[in-house]
Design a protein around this nucleic acid. Structure first.
Lengths: 163, 163
DNA sequence: CAAAATCATATTGCGCGCAATTTAATTTTG
DNA sequence: CAAAATTAAATTGCGCGCAATATGATTTTG
């Protein structure tokens, strides 16, 4: 009588057992779930203003630095033009930003906040505080966790290279 | 001469300054970025097997418990039928799972691994180790971070209720 | 200076993720 | 037991996220 429960099953390498494959056991799944939980929490706050979470991220960037190129926004948020082009058109259609070709370099499109886009900034402080409350973290806890995640992201992106 | 730089700008509430709105300063953005970094890292490992990351999550569930209903998978992963139905059809088309209506309760669809789906499990151990290496975390660090994120997710989902 | 290379943005296509609706089956309850 | 309510899954529609490709504009370089 074999100790193998199923002919298809393969023995895990030393130091790794079968149960470690469970999604709940894995860091990646915890991050995946937390990301979804955040967007769920933002959703009712943002849809009062007709915004999605990625659109809100773009506005966060622009509230720091008005007049950004699509490329600059993409570098800040880690998004490419395939994501940003249609997203920015929707923000323009909503009246929150303007898109104008750079006269010096016609390849570039300059994104600027409209008065409506600037006005939304004051709502962001309230959202920031509501989200802070929803996390149940102190500011220090949130900053510590944020920094751990930034380091993790950097290490993952470095490892990226080797594939 | 006003101290306000722009008529549209609004003063932040006490204890919150303008720069705190920057995406890089926020925990939500760190999680958002880390989630994308993880899928980027998984991508080359998974596409050797023609899998996406969410498909891989479904397989992780099934490797723990073969024979799950769509609902059970959805509860484990936090996904609804709108996401799972087409995803499971693709996994079926790829030959990794079977979908059969439950004879006892015809509303339910039972998802089972095929031999091909079971065979993929042995690849998962290698992926697990590669990902572990890519994170640059010790197992303890990864587990600590995972638990912090699980708590955060729970608190966000509780706060959910109040909106 | 013209051809080639590079660059910024847009477009297309596909797979999530989720809200809203639909369909069919089962359970509840009057 | 029949009508109403509930449930499980599928479908539709929309907005990402990203790879691949296309389109112009600018820079490089031969």
């Amino acid at each position: 009588m074999s100790i193998m429960k199923d002919a298809q099953e393969t023995l895990p390498p030393a130091g790794i057992d079968d149960a470690m494959l469970a999604p709940e056991r894995q860091l990646c799944f915890a991050i995946y779930s937390a990301a979804h939980a955040f967007t769920r929490t933002y959703k009712p706050m943002l849809e009062r203003f007709g915004l999605t979470y990625p659109q809100y991220l773009v506005l966060l960037s622009l509230w720091q630095t008005d007049e950004m190129t699509v490329k600059a926004i993409g570098e800040e948020l880690g998004l490419d033009s395939g994501t940003l082009s249609p997203l920015l058109k929707r923000l323009e259609a909503a009246g929150h930003i303007s898109r104008t070709r750079d006269k010096q370099d016609e390849r570039q499109v300059i994104i600027r906040l409209t008065p409506s886009g600037k006005a939304l900034k004051k709502e962001a402080f309230g959202i920031l505080m509501q989200i802070g409350a929803a996390t149940g973290c102190s500011r220090e806890e949130a900053e510590n966790l944020r920094d751990l995640l930034r380091n993790l992201t950097d290490r993952l992106d470095e490892a990226q290279q080797s594939f």
